[in-house]
Design a protein around this nucleic acid. Sequence first.
DNA 1: CGAGAAATTGAGTCTCTTCAAACCCCGTGG
DNA 2: CCACGGGGTTTGAAGAGACTCAATTTCTCG
Lengths: 244, 244
Amino acid sequence: MGADEFMHILLRKLNAIHQLTDEEQSALLDALSAPRELGRGRDIVADGSTPGQTTVMLSGTACRYKMLPNGKRHILAFQFPGDMTDLYSYVLKRMDHAIGTLSTCTFAHISHEKVQDLRIQFPNLGFAFWRDTMVDTSIAHAWATGSSRKTIARVAYMFCEIYARLERVGKAELERPLDFNATQQDLADALGLSLVHINKTVAQLKKKELIARTGTKVVILNWEGLQAVAGFDPVYLHFRNTLG
Amino acid sequence: MGADEFMHILLRKLNAIHQLTDEEQSALLDALSAPRELGRGRDIVADGSTPGQTTVMLSGTACRYKMLPNGKRHILAFQFPGDMTDLYSYVLKRMDHAIGTLSTCTFAHISHEKVQDLRIQFPNLGFAFWRDTMVDTSIAHAWATGSSRKTIARVAYMFCEIYARLERVGKAELERPLDFNATQQDLADALGLSLVHINKTVAQLKKKELIARTGTKVVILNWEGLQAVAGFDPVYLHFRNTLG
DNA sequence: CGAGAAATTGAGTCTCTTCAAACCCCGTGG
DNA sequence: CCACGGGGTTTGAAGAGACTCAATTTCTCG
């Protein structure tokens, strides 16, 4: 698996958000550092740090998270291949959360100076960056509304989002195991619910034959049914082309 | 109360986020439309719409919110004077939530074309816009972590944030009634909790003599105590100058 | 095959919700 | 100047949902 195939995914992701010119695309790829790898349970970016570079996910699943004073971990968002996880730090300078791996991850960097140059030289690319961060906000909003909804809907929603985002970059298809191996504890931390309760809710989704588990991975058996339970509408992901 | 005094607040807000040059400041003010007013309970921007302009709050309290399929309203964020509530729509085009008033509000607009021109002509101003939207994201993250915390801490946190954000633009001081007259139902919708439970929690904060109510408004009696209960740390608001 | 991690299950407890009723503040009109 | 009305607040009580604790099973990988 060559570097090209890795790189491509960033363009797939960004183009799904906002159309880029060939010139912008190649300038962007030129700015990427060599890929790095990190195993599960490590920090890519530490809370409170002031990184000098931005991270681009190439493979694996990571998350934004905060450790709370009471010792609990709260996951704010999942990060999938193609995501630029910390444009955040380019704009806000100091991280107010961390980025951690949930599986083995590969990723590359773009220095903040380079981001700055690209943004000013190519305002359209700058817009794509901005838009990418706003889609993150939109996702955060969608998660936030969860607290007013039934737990089973929230859990189903989670799977819908994971599938939709992976599908967007060509990393998932229906009735195939999702390339997403977070634990139920991770899901619990993302939803702010207890592991036990998540487990029982996932069991309900299985009993309804909406999803199943094969080994470590999850399979979506009934996409329409799952969306219906979740009340899932992918507009909030702001793809340029809609999803089936 | 002249238009100048109104306008000034936008600069106060943006400068608290990112330093602007005089030229940028005047270009920004030139772009503002004449102010409009709307009473409580009205929409400034409708969900699903594609506005051609951005709203700048001048006075009053508004909120981002979504109506959920189950008929509940979920408030995603409060909007205070100086906030540019829907840069959101400039970037994402289609709103995936609405902006509504929680009190009588005054506000002005800047057309999206103008935003585009300003962003490209003054990259530093463009950065300030971007940064402003990222602070919104940071706030959304802070709210999101709430679901893993005790209710009394979350409610206290809410008052801390409201005070800090109003204080930033010179609209609040301690031991004076906050210029914020949302109802407890509004708070409940923001926290995703029931009105009854909010009420009982607010009662606890009063019993601890951290806050009090004078007429419709809330007064902060013990700022340190309130922050301690809330676990409030204002870094997430990303002010350039810290708060006492 | 064994060790460790993750998933599952059951039981008791506490939080939060819902329902319902009463109260209070404040502006309006007689 | 006081009665009335409406929105917002306060209070009580019962039930549902979610949490913790704790034990067991299943899976994965060396």
